[in-house]
Design a protein around this nucleic acid. Structure first.
Lengths: 197, 197
DNA sequence: CGCATTGACATACGATGCGTATGTGGCCCA
DNA sequence: TGGGCCACATACGCATCGTATGTCAATGCG
């Protein structure tokens, strides 16, 4: 079994990450105070610097955690699609829907890139994007999709979905624009298909 | 003629904006010191707070200025295209190329949204995006493009181009991936066309 | 089983940087 | 030409981050 100290350590990290997700999502990275954040978790800044090295390190940990959750949900969305192409579309739609959550939007789409730099450079290697790339490559191999560069296409698809989500989230009536965005997304993605269907 | 004081005022604003563009692009918004910034312009923070209200106000002014320049270049790109559809593509390509400049990338794509919020909410009303929407609407009206929501499509297109640019800029060899991104962009955009060409 | 050591976290300190309140010198108009 | 006003400089307080130091409990060894 894991030693008692290691258990406490993990619990501490979890508490900090939990508080950080809430604070970063609510106030944004810059405006979030480390003192308040750690106090909320029943700790002090000492624990923070010991476990994560600093404010950026904590953000990094939060980003990694959310990224893992996003991949999980994208996998689930893809699994319940009839074929691989629909799976790709469902991935995109799932991505759009996830980006509606303030936590994802603020942390992953706004502050994350601004503080940590381009997502593709993140240590976690942007698992989310990697998944889309792999799916696309498979579609190209099986002849469903035109022979374009898989990574390039994946990035464009992701970018399109991302902006769709940002748009929806900022709209007066998100529920109203969501179908419009999804429809436009499907049309756009169809451009990658090899032949008319 | 404009009074002398007004002239000096404009000159001061211009000097501050110039210094801000350099500092924000080089260090990022958060790391840019207002003291250094204003000193670089031969002024102090007093001038800053008088003219722009604060750090955010200065960023806003910088963003507006760059946004105007981007629209100008997109117009130029569109004008030298054979038809309206190619004009749209050229706009996209121009957008991608502009996003390769560190200034645009850092200020407009990373720090801008993070600090000022979603671009579509900016006072300047995101002239850049507005242009694409208008072009798309015209293409829909003339029957070239499928009858999708113009704004939705414009946002997706822009988002795709944006991410393409971010990818290119972060790549080890930007010159090598640029053509791949442009090609994928063209393929993707083709999904909006009404019929096969 | 008890003590020295390690390490997780708290506390204390210094530095930096933003925003605001107050001061001042030069331009405009009577 | 002199007083008011305005653009900008100076001075201050406050918040926050990072680091250096302290402390107490868990661990492992004799």
């Amino acid at each position: 079994m894991a030693t008692k100290r290691a258990q406490m350590m993990e619990e501490t990290r979890a508490k900090l990450i939990r508080a950080a997700r809430k604070a970063f999502a609510a106030k944004g990275y810059a405006a979030a105070s480390m003192d308040e954040l750690t106090a909320e978790a029943g700790l002090t800044r000492g624990a923070l610097y010991h476990n994560f090295g600093g404010k950026q390190g904590l953000l990094q940990a939060v980003v990694d955690q959310i990224d893992r959750e996003m991949v999980e949900r994208m996998l689930a969305a893809q699994d319940q699609a009839a074929n691989r192409w629909d799976g790709l579309l469902e991935e995109g739609v799932a991505y759009i829907e996830m980006a509606l959550e303030p936590e994802v939007q603020r942390i992953m789409l706004l502050d994350g890139p601004a503080v940590l730099g381009d997502p593709s450079q993140w240590p976690n290697q942007n698992a989310c994007l990697l998944r889309t790339t792999q799916t696309l490559q498979a579609l190209i191999d099986e002849g469903t999709v035109k022979p374009v560069d898989a990574e390039a296409a994946a990035r464009l698809i992701n970018g399109a979905a991302l902006n769709a989500a940002l748009w929806i989230a900022a709209a007066d009536d998100p529920r109203a624009v969501l179908p419009k965005a999804v429809e436009a997304f499907r049309q756009l993605a169809a451009g990658l298909l090899r032949a008319e269907r």
